[in-house]
Amino acid sequence: MTMKTEDLSGWSPRRLPGTEPMRGERVELVALGAEAHWRDLWDATGGSAGRAIWTYMPIGPFDGEAAFREGIAWIADRPDWVAFAIVDRAAGRALGTASYMRLDPANGVGEVGCIVYGEGLRRSAAATEAMLLMARRIFDELGYRRYEWKCDAQNLPSRSAAARLGFTPEGLFRQHMVVKGRNRDTAWFSIIDREWPAIRAGTEAWLSELDEAGRQRTSLSERIAAERAAHAGRARR
C-alpha cells in the first residue's frame, strides 16, 4: 500500500512557547518561579512526607525545605524547558507544575512533562483544564504539528492519564534511560494536529458538562471518542 505524502511545501518553523499566563475557569498557569511558588508547592505535595509523588520524576524526594526549593529552581531555570506553576484560582495558590520540554520548533514538535499534581489538583477537573490550556497554546496559538507525552513504563497513573486526555500510545522505548539508579523503559504517546480539534472539542464539552459538585456525566475518554467519531463522520461526507 502506498502512503499518501502530505504536502508541507508551505511549512515554516514555529515560535517557541512563551511564559505568558494561560487562564481558565479553574486554574491559571503562570511562569514557575522558585521564590514565588516553592512554599505553596511544598505544602501541596506533602512536604517531606510526600515522597511517593517524586518516584518517577527526575528529581526528589526531598528531605527538607531547602532541598525542595533547590528542586523547584532546577525545574524553573532549565533553559530547554518552559515551566509553569498551576495556580488554583479560587485558593490563589500553586498546586502543581507542568513544563513544555524537548521543543523542536523547526518541525513543530513539543512535549508536556515534569507534571506534578499536589493535593487539591490530583484527579480533578482543574488538572484536566490545565492540560487543555497547555495543548491549546501548542496547537491553536503556535500551530505545532505534534504534541508528546512520555513516562516511565511502570508509571501506570501517567499512562492512564495520557490515554484519558486523548494521547495515542506509540510504543515502548526499552532501556531508554537510567533514572535514580534504575532502568527506565519509556512509554511514548502523542497527539497530532489533525486529531486535536476533536480532542479539544471533547475536553471542552466534558468540562462544561460537569455538575456543580464537579461530577462527570460521562467519562472524558468517552466524550473525546464521541467527538472523534463525529469529526470522522463529517470528514467522510
Rank of each mutant, 00 (worst) to 15 (best):
K4G: 11
K4N: 14
D7E: 07
L8T: 07
S9V: 10
G10C: 10
P13Q: 07
P13L: 06
R15W: 03
L16G: 04
P17F: 04
P17G: 06
T19M: 05
M22K: 06
G24E: 03
E25A: 14
E25Q: 13
V30H: 05
V30W: 07
A34L: 03
D43P: 07
G47F: 14
R51L: 05
T55E: 06
M57W: 05
G60V: 12
F62C: 04
A67K: 08
R69C: 12
G71Q: 04
A76M: 02
P79Q: 02
D80A: 02
F84G: 09
A85K: 01
A90V: 05
A91L: 14
R93A: 07
L95Y: 09
T97I: 14
R102P: 04
L103C: 10
L103I: 13
A106I: 12
N107Q: 15
N107S: 13
G108D: 14
V109G: 08
E111L: 12
V112H: 08
G113A: 05
C114G: 08
V116C: 09
Y117Q: 12
Y117H: 15
E119M: 01
L121T: 01
R123G: 05
S124V: 15
T128A: 06
L132H: 01
A135W: 03
D140S: 13
E141F: 08
L142G: 08
R145L: 15
R146F: 15
W149F: 00
C151H: 06
D152Q: 00
R164K: 15
G166K: 11
G166F: 07
T168Y: 00
T168S: 12
P169S: 11
L172F: 09
H176N: 14
M177H: 07
V178S: 09
V179R: 00
V179C: 00
V179S: 02
T186F: 00
A187K: 03
S190D: 07
I191F: 01
I192S: 02
I192P: 00
E195S: 13
A201Y: 07
W206R: 05
L207C: 00
S208V: 01
E209C: 07
D211P: 00
E212Y: 03
A213Y: 03
G214F: 14
R215A: 12
Q216E: 15
I224F: 13
A232P: 07
G233C: 05
R234D: 06
A235M: 14
A235N: 06
R237M: 01
